[in-house]
Design a protein around this nucleic acid. Structure first.
Lengths: 239, 239
DNA sequence: CGCAGTGTTGAAGCATATCAACTTGGGTGG
DNA sequence: CCACCCAAGTTGATATGCTTCAACACTGCG
């Protein structure tokens, strides 16, 4: 059940057998969510944190005028709301973008981890730090990159993150988002996202049909996106 | 020396006398930086983390075309690169926006804290989680708010964060950024930022002269920014 | 068959960037 | 002390990017 989590944590540092068994013991109660369901609601105070097992979920905030901004995408192996363990009150919601299978870790058990397993604690902490690094990269893309480069950068990031948890098939991966949802990720209108996507297609960089993205030219794509994966901390070293 | 840090951490939960003395013992070597100096450079692997004592600093990334995006502003009491403790390699730089006084905490000592002081560890972890929450709020503002509302939101946030560390004087605070630097925060051109700022002035919401911001109408400002400080986790409760 | 969600396209209008010029104030060297 | 200079702020004009509105095509599904 925690295979993807172990691949995720294992991309940063070695996870010991003891740590593996502790994780196994505190992660339980598998549940499913359907498209559009809130895994966690804004303003709630959950007593557990949620681990993605299958599917894609998104953190979002909705403004008074009804517009939505998605601030993060989560893939299997991600803890989507480890934040709530210490922040207590959710300042945003998390919604299922596809059918999602998840499991839970009680905050009480996580607290015990912080009291008895310092190295594992640091690995979980790091997981939330990488979240923050992704946020920063999105800020840079939104603020200063061209729309085309922004979209390209996002596809590069998803490719690398899905690779870590072995959800890449050749040069392709499943991306269960509509263009309208993708526009909410990039902070664009649906129409403009559509036209930008077509530029990437015309340039021969990607294909994106029936919820599947295929990278046609990784070299050119990373170059035009100025993609540098350093921010994902993908090196196995003592933490 | 750690007064501001204690006010910062103390805004989330009680800090015990023992924790205070541990912090005091691991934070040392006060240094100063001048405007434009890098406190931490992109790509470096610092052996310590940096605590702001005085001044304002900014995390930033520069793209190949020379444009800059600022992804965070740090005020006294903030650890600017607690991230590096676990991320190891800095994926961005941190620059002094004013004269800055800082102190350092060795990563070796921070590691010891994670092994012996679980509650203090959680408080430091929370500090980085709030950083992430601020990033998310900036993403929402950049992606979906009007420019005017984005700027208003940022001023609200700075007011509240500076209030925590007692750097608000009446309704005013020092903001040692030029308009050009502020444009790099919001992801705008200098000209457009200037015109937006004048709208806020014309609306009678703020004054901003000689590096000092004065909030003229907090009610209207928060309303037009849809500012809700929940994301800053400003409630003292067990963490 | 018809319907709803999704993707695609074109046209019009608004928002923002870019370019260029001018003002202001503080600091400095003659 | 004055003349000058430079950084910061301000303003207007033009060009581009992006949103909005509206229409239509395609697909899967009841």
């Amino acid at each position: 059940m925690i295979e993807k989590l172990l691949r995720n944590l294992g991309s940063h540092d070695v996870v010991t057998a003891e740590e593996r068994s502790i994780l196994q013991s505190i992660i339980m109660r598998t549940t499913s969510f359907e498209i559009g369901d809130d895994l966690v609601s804004q303003g709630s105070r959950p007593g557990h944190s949620t681990l993605m097992l299958e599917g894609i979920s998104a953190r979002y905030k909705i403004l008074e005028d009804g517009s939505r901004q998605i601030t993060a995408l989560h893939v299997p192996g991600d803890f989507v709301d480890l934040h709530a363990f210490l922040m207590k009150t959710m300042d945003h919601g998390i919604v299922a973008m596809s059918h999602c299978k998840v499991a839970f870790a009680d905050h009480h058990d996580l607290k015990t981890v912080t009291e008895t397993m310092p190295h594992l604690t640091r690995l979980l902490w790091l997981d939330t730090l990488v979240d923050g690094a992704v946020h920063r990269e999105w800020l840079v893309a939104m603020g200063r990159r061209s729309t085309k480069s922004h979209l390209a950068h996002l596809l590069c990031e998803l490719y690398v993150r899905l690779k870590v948890v072995e959800l890449i098939d050749g040069a392709s991966f499943k991306l269960p988002l509509s263009q309208s949802e993708m526009a909410d990720v990039l902070g664009l209108s649906l129409v403009h996202l559509n036209k930008t996507l077509q530029q990437l297609r015309r340039d021969g960089l990607v294909r994106w049909e029936s919820r599947t993205v295929e990278i046609l030219d990784w070299e050119k794509l990373t170059e035009m996106a100025e993609f540098d994966p350093t921010y994902l901390s993908l090196s196995v070293e003592p933490r």
